[in-house]
Write a protein that binds this DNA or RNA. Structure first.
Lengths: 138, 138
DNA sequence: TAACAACCTACCAAATTAGTAGGGAATAAT
DNA sequence: ATTATTCCCTACTAATTTGGTAGGTTGTTA
């Protein structure tokens, strides 16, 4: 399951996606509009910025905005930044790989099943973007 | 990610799947063979029993065994019993559904994306079984 | 120089995870 | 009947993660 933080991130990003190209949006606007605790949201947006998904501007007229088009930000990217690995086992993760103890990976049946699962999941999450979220929200 | 407990469960179940039809297997055998902390494993097997996946026998000659064929126990079933929901959001889960706050489900774009993801994931996890794990472990 | 707004560090409570401890209850063999 | 065997049950614990909060700092604009 995605953490609440990740859900907040998606909600905030959807809002920023809707406002893409219209200049910076205040944290406080996102917070009140999407009902996300303000200080918590600060952290989240900052993390997204450090991952180069957002850009920010301080002072009056400042705020946050998407660094690139919502069509180019996949759900997988967002999940990896805020939530972590997408695969069900560390030894199957592409971006957060960790060897598992007492397991010969070449001959691990579970690992093979989880690899297939990961590929099926990623096929969707890598393709769908923030833009798809707002398009689907009819 | 699956919890360590769930990984233990899969390892124990694979072992029981290999010994399907050969009578009960001791917790202690599984523990030493698969390197799973014995007391922790007790809990896990007991949970699997309560979910009707295993049957047990006490006293000498006792132990645990699969209640049904390893071909009939899907990975999804095991994950749901030990790990919980498979979907990425509670509002998308088939077996652990929970409504999310401040979200009109009919018009939630994220929800739609996560539903598609869930279906892709389940397509694999519902089909693959314990038997597939041991077959893939060549 | 004041106001605005993001940034940073640090802390906190609650929940979850990954176990451990110790005895109880059912079964089988003697 | 008793003993050994083996699963069963309740309770506890330490470490980690989650979901925040508090309060001040830095950069920007008017």
């Amino acid at each position: 399951m995605l953490s609440k933080k990740t859900q907040y991130a998606f909600r905030a990003l959807s809002y920023l996606a809707e406002n893409y190209g219209k200049g910076p949006v205040l944290i406080s606007s996102i917070s009140s509009e999407k009902k996300i605790p303000l200080k918590f949201l600060e952290n989240i947006l900052n993390e997204l910025k450090k991952a180069d998904l957002l850009e920010s501007k301080k002072g009056k007229g400042g705020g946050y905005s998407l660094r690139i088009s919502p069509r180019k930000i996949s759900l997988a990217t967002v999940i990896r930044v805020i939530n972590g690995p997408i695969a069900l086992l560390p030894c199957v993760s592409l971006n957060f790989y960790e060897k598992c103890a007492d397991c010969n990976e070449e001959h691990c049946g579970l690992r093979k099943m989880m690899t297939i699962t990961r590929d099926a999941t990623l096929k969707i999450l890598e393709k769908k973007t923030l833009n798809d979220i707002i398009l689907a929200a009819v």
